[in-house]
Simulated scan of single mutants.
Amino acid sequence: MSAPVVIIGSGLAAYQCAREFRKLDQTSHLTMIAQDAADFYSKPMLSNALAGKKTAVTLVMKSAAKMAEELSAAILPDTEVVGIDTANKQVLLIDGQALEYRDLVLAIGADPIRLPLAGNADDDVLSVNDINDYAAFAEKLEGVKTVGILGAGLIGCEFANDLLAQGIKPVVIDPAAWPLSRFLPEAAGRYLGQQLQDAGVEFKFGMTATNYDHLEDRYLVELNDGSIVEVDLLLSAVGLRPRIHLATSAGLKVNRGIVVDQALQTSQPHIYALGDCAEVMGLNLPFVMPIMHCARALAATLAGTPTPVKYPAMPIVVKTPACPTVVAPPAIGAQGEWQVSAIEGGVDARFVDAQGQLLGFALLGAAVKEKQQLSAQLPSLLP
């Protein structure tokens, strides 16, 4: 029997790649290896699941067994990969097994960044990066009135908005001066902050948490100015770090993520990477649309038609119903300036170069209706 295509991972990137591959190749053997139960669910839905009254059980769309049947694949759940033998093209499992591969796909995701906090409750800081995390978080919300959130970025703002649906007050702590500071110019960011604040979110801007202590039936978060915030839970949403350990131990080139070329191939032949763990031509984009483009391109390559991935403009829809927001950040290092217009019920911010070429935008509130028109004017991220 010929060696299979092996995909390590069971998230959106892994399953989307497998689905696209099966559309093109129904006969090659396919094996998927997952550290978790390998059930299929939408990770992006975790940050707005509370408003939809979703539980960890109802978030699961299909079981691993159902996915195995649909994909004609062998799926190995709850299985840890401890190494890759590139010379012999084998994946090494924790139980001592060595599985041969024809081609290997790393779709192993990223881990939440944890900020070091002094105090006796550092281990009680929560993060939600997968369905098991969500189950643990949701279980702790009963009777909770206040949740502290570290980070006013994309995930922090989405969780803050989602907690409001449960009648829970979020207190968001961030060293920046406005939310989504990586993506939004100041005027747009302050507008978003005000809309969320009006909905019930409390912000502590220009602040960092230094201590986290458990005191009887409550937690105390000490900020760098010495002030104290009393919360029932503390959620960390300060970003993700691509999982690169497996690639590093196999001698693959890594930077912020696992370095791949435009064909999504790593520095080793027959090994590819996509999703949150991958750095594609210098870009690490942990969002849905880049994953979908990568999955289609890589599936074609695995099926015998080498296909470089291309990134068109891919605006990000922020799940904050209190203030609908769509952002298309300009490329890192892009030369230009933000032109911000306040409109009735929103903010229209456009990043243009010296020639007036649109390089990015941020649309809030009523301005989101311009998304399609402006997206068509943006240059490709990866031609």
Rank of each mutant, 00 (worst) to 15 (best):
V221R: 04
L215N: 12
F40K: 10
T86V: 14
D353T: 08
V6E: 02
E222Y: 15
L363I: 06
V280I: 15
S267V: 01
D198G: 01
G333F: 02
A295E: 04
P290H: 08
V82R: 07
A303D: 09
G151M: 10
A107L: 13
N284V: 14
I131L: 15
L141G: 02
G206C: 10
F137K: 09
H270Y: 11
I33K: 13
A342L: 12
S236R: 07
D111W: 02
A342T: 14
A303T: 03
L12H: 09
V82I: 15
I131E: 01
L298K: 12
A362T: 03
N161A: 15
I75T: 01
Q262N: 13
L196T: 01
L12W: 00
I113E: 11
L164V: 06
S236G: 12
P44M: 09
Q377L: 15
D133W: 09
L233R: 12
P185C: 11
F159H: 07
A98F: 06
L223T: 06
G109A: 13
G239E: 11
N211M: 08
A135D: 13
L302W: 09
E80M: 10
M67H: 00
Q335V: 15
V105S: 06
D217T: 09
Y15Q: 06
A138Y: 01
I84W: 07
I7H: 05
K54A: 15
L106A: 08
S181W: 05
D124A: 04
L358M: 14
P112L: 04
V221D: 09
L358Y: 07
I173P: 13
P44G: 13
E337V: 12
V340P: 00
E216D: 15
V6N: 10
I108E: 08
L364W: 08
G153V: 02
D95L: 10
F351G: 06
A136T: 10
T146M: 05
V280H: 14
L92N: 07
L302K: 07
Q265F: 03
R296W: 00
T86N: 02
A135W: 02
Q195Y: 05
M314Q: 02
L235E: 06
